[in-house]
Design a protein around this nucleic acid. Structure first.
Lengths: 87, 87
DNA sequence: TATATTTGTGTATTATAATAAACAAAATAT
DNA sequence: ATATTTTGTTTATTATAATACACAAATATA
């Protein structure tokens, strides 16, 4: 597969999503950082695809109400794993 | 909402998912760490809900072929954001 | 255009995730 | 039951994410 998705791709995509969500809330990087107790620089780096901690990512996701969708995604993967042997 | 999902909940759930996936592949924590260039201790901590880096999480996800589903989830969120104004 | 705001980038410092090694406790296998 | 493997936990060290500045570049606003 020459067109497989990479870790780097996902990090970049997460950054873009953060930026998009943030702008839809009319917040600056400063605003977002302040709202969730992170520095603007941490937001800045994350939005540009740099590495971050899970806490940082989940705090951001939480602020944009994405924790429940994420949980559902995880649950779906767990379900898939349990049901694969039934076919 | 007294029953809202927390950052900690998601970290725990991700750890459980990692353990479940790993066991379905018949791998020890050592095996998994070795396979993706991480120490056993890093796997150990992640599976028990401790904080980790995005790189660590995505390397694990990648090893279990969860990067594409994750990408799709992100894309769905982006789509939802773009379409919300149409209703 | 000028002003204000936001974003990108740099440097130094601090906090903490990741590593490595060892050992005990649990779980599995023989 | 014993041996083997796996997991949980500790300590010390290293790598790096996060912070706090400052300042220039880019965007948006008046």
């Amino acid at each position: 597969m020459i067109n497989s998705i990479t870790v780097k791709d996902v990090k970049l995509k997460l950054g873009v999503l953060c930026k998009s969500k943030r702008q839809s809330y009319d917040m600056s990087q400063e605003d977002l950082g302040e709202a969730i107790g992170l520095s603007r620089y941490t937001i800045q780096k994350f939005e540009n695809g740099k590495n971050a901690t899970l806490d940082t990512v989940l705090k951001i996701a939480n602020h944009f109400d994405l924790l429940k969708p994420l949980k559902k995604g995880i649950d779906k993967i767990i379900e898939d794993e349990n049901n694969i042997s039934l076919y």
